Amino acid sequence: MQTKPVTIAEFLTPFMFVALLGVLMIVEGFMHMGRENNALQFIFGVPVLLGALGAHWVVWRASLRNLRTMWIVEGVLVAIFWYLFYYVF
């Protein structure tokens, strides 16, 4: 069985952008050590990063590495999570 080579487009998906936001949260927490709630940046950044990476891996495997399916599923899931975070909770 021959496998497809991994392309850069498979890693530039909505969940990977959310993972980048998690990394930015962690870095901002480390950059502003004197701020009052900088530990919360790290504490909330790690689950965002790991959750987005895990969800990306699950969608990547479930879609059989079909790029269009990955983008549609991840885009819908990120949109739902964004809606829940900003308008419901």
Score class of each variant (00 low, 15 high):
52 A>M: 04
26 I>L: 09
61 R>V: 14
21 L>D: 04
19 A>F: 01
3 T>M: 12
49 L>Y: 02
11 F>R: 08
52 A>N: 00
30 F>A: 09
29 G>Y: 01
78 V>W: 01
18 V>K: 03
57 W>I: 07
10 E>G: 02
40 L>A: 11
89 F>M: 10
64 L>H: 14
57 W>K: 12
32 H>E: 11
61 R>S: 10
33 M>L: 14
66 N>W: 02
86 Y>E: 10
46 V>R: 04
27 V>M: 13
48 V>T: 15
87 Y>V: 09
81 F>T: 08
60 W>E: 00
48 V>N: 00
48 V>P: 00
85 F>M: 15
31 M>A: 14
78 V>M: 02
9 A>L: 15
49 L>V: 07
13 T>P: 00
14 P>F: 01
47 P>F: 06
10 E>Q: 14
43 I>T: 11
76 V>R: 02
75 G>I: 00
89 F>Q: 08
55 A>R: 04
65 R>N: 08
4 K>N: 11
87 Y>E: 10
63 S>N: 04
45 G>Q: 03
17 F>E: 01
84 L>R: 02
86 Y>K: 12
66 N>I: 09
11 F>V: 05
50 L>K: 06
88 V>T: 08
16 M>I: 12
67 L>Y: 07
57 W>M: 12
80 I>C: 06
39 A>Q: 13
1 M>W: 00
47 P>I: 07
71 W>P: 04
13 T>M: 13
46 V>Q: 05
80 I>Y: 00
87 Y>K: 09
59 V>L: 02
43 I>E: 12
28 E>L: 15
43 I>S: 10
36 E>T: 12
63 S>F: 03
43 I>H: 09
53 L>S: 02
20 L>I: 13
31 M>Q: 13
2 Q>Y: 09
44 F>Y: 13
15 F>R: 06
8 I>H: 06
61 R>P: 00
51 G>H: 02
25 M>G: 09
14 P>L: 05
62 A>G: 01
84 L>P: 01
57 W>Q: 10
39 A>D: 13
64 L>G: 15
13 T>N: 05
41 Q>N: 15
4 K>D: 10
14 P>V: 05
15 F>K: 02
65 R>T: 07
61 R>Y: 09
57 W>R: 12
70 M>Y: 00
76 V>G: 01
6 V>W: 07
18 V>I: 15
42 F>T: 13
2 Q>C: 03
26 I>Q: 04
50 L>T: 10
9 A>H: 11
29 G>K: 05
36 E>G: 06
85 F>G: 08
62 A>W: 11
16 M>F: 09
6 V>M: 15
32 H>W: 13
49 L>W: 07
53 L>E: 02
70 M>W: 00
72 I>A: 09
33 M>N: 10
11 F>K: 06
46 V>L: 15
83 Y>D: 00
43 I>C: 02
21 L>Q: 04
43 I>K: 14
31 M>E: 11
19 A>P: 02
60 W>S: 10
1 M>T: 11
14 P>Y: 06
42 F>R: 12
62 A>M: 10
44 F>G: 01
85 F>S: 15
26 I>A: 07
56 H>L: 03
74 E>G: 03
31 M>R: 14
78 V>S: 03
88 V>F: 10
36 E>Y: 11
37 N>I: 08
84 L>G: 06
53 L>C: 12
11 F>I: 08
5 P>L: 00
83 Y>R: 04
66 N>F: 03
18 V>S: 07
31 M>G: 10
49 L>F: 15
8 I>G: 03
